[in-house]
Amino acid sequence: EESVKIVRLVKNKEPLGATIRRDEHSGAVVVARIMRGGAADRSGLVHVGDELREVNGIAVLHKRPDEISQILAQSQGSITLKIIPATQE
């Protein structure tokens, strides 16, 4: 059973501070990098390897990473992410 986590981040004009990529094996959209000091890093709630399912209620599974980045870039104020946390080894 996948544990889905709802994360709310507050982002002003600054970038979210995370990059995403598509996992070639599973097809999932995952967090590739977290930039120090960005909104994602400061929240402490988003981690490399987390699978991104939704951004502000928009399912991202069938979107290209550049489309998802665009949605994230255009979002201001509160951003709600639905993520499946990376499995902690």
Rank of each mutant, 00 (worst) to 15 (best):
I79N: 05
I58F: 06
G44N: 08
R64E: 15
L52G: 01
E89P: 12
T80W: 08
Q70P: 04
V48T: 06
R33W: 08
K13R: 13
H25D: 13
I20E: 03
R21S: 11
S43L: 04
L9V: 14
I68P: 02
R22F: 09
V31E: 04
R22Q: 10
D50T: 03
V29Y: 14
A18M: 15
Q70E: 14
N56R: 00
E54R: 02
S43G: 04
S78F: 11
G77L: 04
V10Y: 13
V31W: 02
L72V: 13
T19H: 10
G27S: 06
T87N: 15
K82E: 05
G77C: 06
I68R: 00
G44F: 00
M35V: 14
V4R: 05
I79M: 11
K63V: 03
E67D: 08
M35K: 15
K63I: 03
H47D: 06
G27Y: 01
L9C: 04
E89L: 10
L52V: 13
E54W: 01
A39R: 07
G57C: 00
E54S: 08
G38N: 02
E24Y: 08
A32I: 08
H62W: 07
D23Q: 08
V60R: 01
I34Q: 03
V30W: 07
G37W: 03
R21I: 14
R42M: 08
S75W: 07
I79G: 03
I83K: 05
V30C: 08
G57Q: 04
I79C: 10
H47I: 00
Q70D: 12
Q76R: 11
D50N: 01
H25M: 13
G77Q: 10
R36C: 07
R21L: 10
S69H: 13
R8D: 06
A28W: 03
N12C: 07
V60E: 02
I71P: 02
V29M: 15
E51L: 05
I34V: 12
S43V: 01
K11W: 11
G49I: 01
Q88H: 11
L45T: 09
P85L: 01
E24P: 14
N56C: 05
I83M: 10
V31I: 14
T80P: 04
R42Q: 10
G77K: 09
V10F: 14
S75P: 09
H62S: 12
K5S: 13
K82H: 08
V48F: 02
V55A: 04
L81Y: 00
E67T: 06
R64Q: 14
N56I: 01
S26Q: 05
I84K: 15
V48E: 14
S43K: 02
L52F: 05
G44W: 01
H47G: 07
E67Q: 11
E51C: 05
I68E: 02
T87R: 12
G37Y: 05
A39C: 13
K82I: 01
P65H: 08
V29H: 12
A32M: 05
E67L: 05
L52T: 01
Q70L: 07
V55F: 03
I79Y: 08
I84R: 11
R42N: 07
E54Y: 03
L52Q: 02
N56G: 04
R42I: 08
A86S: 12
E51A: 05
A18G: 01
I20N: 01
G77R: 09
P65A: 15
K82W: 00
V48S: 06
K11P: 09
P65C: 14
E2D: 15
R64V: 04
V60H: 02
R21K: 12
E51Q: 10
D50V: 00
I68D: 02
N56D: 09
S69M: 14
H47V: 04
G44A: 05
D66H: 12
A18E: 03
G57I: 00
R22W: 10
V46H: 01
A40N: 00
